[in-house]
Design a binder for these strands. Structure first.
Lengths: 160, 160
DNA sequence: GCTTGATATGTTATAGTATTACATTTAGCA
DNA sequence: TGCTAAATGTAATACTATAACATATCAAGC
């Protein structure tokens, strides 16, 4: 069972409700959740882990939804622009958003052993980064906040 | 004149003193600041901007210090391991450390217009990320904290 | 001084990540 | 219907990074 904040949960429900929310959000904002885009989101949602663009592409290819890299990158562009997914810069990988809907400044806890990712909610203007920005007269448009380390499970059992 | 925390400063002195500190640190810790490594640091120090590995390699090549990618990546590995440089994950680029010497958890303000980078000092266990980690039982080994936006100069004059 | 082992460098090839460019198709709308 | 914008198909290429292995350098101990 995948982790959510490193906690077990009803993952089938987790996928179902997020897709439903994405459908509703797109209807409301006149965005098109096309078959490729919807399937890409579903694939990312399948695990609370970050997937590489080419990993995503491989699954899309199995489904006959495209084989060339732009297929995956376009879907990821859409999903990240809409706030349905995030890029984990430290891994060059992508993950479904765990706090659906609104614009937000996510922060990630990334387990370097099992590759699980937990998403925490933050705001760009809080904390030390916000302080530093205000002091420097710097205007933040996007933040990348990632912590690499070991999740509770992997601290106890340090196997791969 | 390059920016330092987006402030003008004596940059020649900034380079000189940092190289001297690096020499001293290496002597003290039995690390070898070989010609390639020293020149790589000098190149990164030349600007308070992030350079791609291949940008660095191009300059090293001009100096006859190597032409193949591993030359640049090895130098960068050494410099980042020693704490003399950091990787900016959001840009896949590298920058000389502005707070020399100690282990630290840097945070960066990155101007998307002029590509200047300012480095702020933080600690991994403070702030909201540290809170989230403690709450989840997660052990942090490394943090990536980057803010993309506009520096004071580029807010006023939004040219490239 | 010589040997040895560890570290550093030289070099080729390749893996992994991402974009450009342009042709074609589809969907919404005047 | 015909127009326009958005989405998709596809080939080629650019950018980022590492693997693998040969060679060279250097310091420690004999």
């Amino acid at each position: 069972m995948p982790a959510f904040g490193f906690q077990p949960h009803d993952h089938a429900d987790c996928i179902r409700t997020t897709l439903a929310q994405a459908d509703a959000y797109c209807a409301q904002h006149k965005l098109k959740l096309t078959p490729i885009r919807r399937r890409a989101l579903e694939i990312l949602l399948a695990e609370h882990r970050a997937l590489g663009a080419y990993d995503l592409l491989a699954v899309l290819a199995e489904d006959g939804l495209g084989t060339a890299p732009p297929v995956a990158y376009r879907a990821l562009d859409f999903l990240t622009s809409a706030g349905f997914a995030h890029k984990i810069e430290g891994l060059n990988a992508y993950i479904a958003c765990a706090h659906f809907g609104a614009d937000h400044s996510p922060a990630f806890l990334i387990c370097t052993s099992c590759k699980s990712v937990a998403e925490a909610e933050t705001t760009a203007t809080q904390g030390r980064l916000g302080e530093a920005a205000r002091a420097a007269g710097f205007t933040i448009s996007r933040t990348v906040v990632e912590a690499l380390g070991l999740c509770p499970q992997c601290q106890e059992a340090p196997c791969a």
